[in-house]
């Protein structure tokens, strides 16, 4: 460990703002693209599910009409 205390670690020898700005924005961007990709998967699968349900309803309605 290069730092004596946690506050030393945060201060980064006076460069804390720049170091944490870098690591913070990096983490934010990485998490951002990760979440947006996960969200896309969910969105696509739910739209497929909707389409499947819709087709099932249409099929059901047609069957009822015939009866």
């Amino acid at each position: 460990m290069q730092f004596d205390s946690f506050s030393d670690f945060i201060a980064m020898g006076g460069y804390g703002f720049y170091v944490w700005l870098s690591f913070g924005s990096c983490a934010l961007i990485l998490i951002g693209i990760l979440l947006s990709s996960l969200n896309d998967t969910k969105r696509i699968l739910s739209s497929v599910q909707q389409q499947v349900d819709r087709e099932a309803r249409i099929k059901q309605a047609k069957l009822e009409q015939q009866v």
Partner: peptide, 17 residues
């Protein structure tokens, strides 16, 4: 990189970027 690597002799801790 943030806690265990030694500080740079010139740039001190800012080099951790």
């Amino acid at each position: 990189g943030l806690a265990y690597a030694p500080a740079d002799y010139q740039q001190k801790d800012s080099y951790r970027i």
